[in-house]
Design a protein around this nucleic acid. Structure first.
Lengths: 192, 192
DNA sequence: CTATTTGCCTAAAGCCTTTAGGTGGGTGCT
DNA sequence: AGCACCCACCTAAAGGCTTTAGGCAAATAG
């Protein structure tokens, strides 16, 4: 009987690959065990339960995304940085749809705080250094960028923009133009 | 033996309520049957299968959302209309998180085309009539608005903005100010 | 007041999750 | 080398959800 050599890390890694292949919600302890040629019960020595496994995949995805973001941001500023970071999210989601879905998993606050979530907010703040925003507008802008990135990527991934001209490539680039223009010229609070 | 009086419609309706209470992914044929005091197998005369039930809930949510949107848009234009439509999405998601999650279900093209999906795009286009955009910028703007609405709402719902000042109410209103300013002053394509 | 429809039931098979307890291969100590 | 221990993986089993097939009884129609 040859041992499969399971570890938590390898399970999470393989779970991420499985997610990209068949979708995050199809990631199951059984399917993962099958992939290792092992009985499902055997995974429970390495993973607390199904939810734990999914959390592990989510944290992995957030980490990978943050790493890519940091690399993309290095040496860039202004619109250049904005576009680079935005493309990181979009490209990652297209290359790894399962992982991206995993990153959307609602984590309990403790887990989220321990993970790479904070790095993401910091990266967006780093992009905003290239524009002239002060608190609290900077926070508003962080949230706007997060919303656009996430919203666009998940709509595009879900096929929300499919079969309609013009193509999504153009839209994406024009949206980034528009965001750049908006950040450059952030409106003051309207007089009540 | 008193009959429960099941119909497809009542099942979908109850499924939507169940989704709001326990989360869309916890909506299960078994749970729904339990709620009607009936065996799970009995539902299969009214609903093809589990996926069919979920699709029904998704279509219901899209319909409800479109109805609310149409009502909100009546008699409004410009920023007024923009804010009204945006609030429809946000309020609906907060009142009916399960239904909102359902509305995000990936539908096959045929089902999507038959449903209220088209009405949503048309409502956004209606809002844009208050601004001076022509094709293809109008399509880009439709997609931008869709991304912001969906992205913001789902991040807020997922707790992405929690426990950090300033509060999300302010951010939401400033984001809408910003979108209004952006649409009013939509940037031309940058020179290559 | 029968006859048909149809609403809900039981039975059963298949798959997933999770816990409990067993066995044997590896590893390290003597 | 021999031995003991540990840990990786196994079998067994209980419980849940999905879905199909076939049956009985309540509602409805002629």
């Amino acid at each position: 009987m040859v041992r499969a050599g399971l570890t938590t890390e390898r399970l999470v890694q393989a779970g991420a690959e499985l997610a990209d292949e068949v979708g995050f919600d199809q990631v199951t302890v059984s399917a993962l065990a099958r992939r290792f040629g092992v009985k499902a019960a055997s995974l429970y020595s390495h993973v607390k339960n199904s939810h734990d496994l999914k959390t592990g995949i989510a944290l992995l995805a957030l980490e990978e995304l943050a790493d890519r973001g940091a690399a993309a941001l290095a040496g860039r500023a202004g619109k250049d940085a904005l576009v680079a970071l935005a493309d990181v999210y979009r490209d990652y989601a297209r290359e790894h749809p399962g992982r991206y879905a995993a990153a959307q998993l609602r984590l309990d606050p403790a887990t989220a705080a321990a993970g790479a979530g904070v790095r993401h907010a910091q990266m967006t703040r780093a992009v905003l250094r290239g524009y002239d925003l002060t608190e609290p507008d900077q926070t508003h802008a962080v949230r706007l960028l997060g919303s656009v990135f996430h919203g666009y990527v998940s709509l595009e991934l879900g096929g929300g923009f499919s079969h309609s001209a013009p193509d999504t490539e153009q839209t994406w680039s024009r949206i980034l133009d528009a965001l750049d223009a908006l950040l450059t010229n952030w409106p003051p609070p309207p007089a009540p």
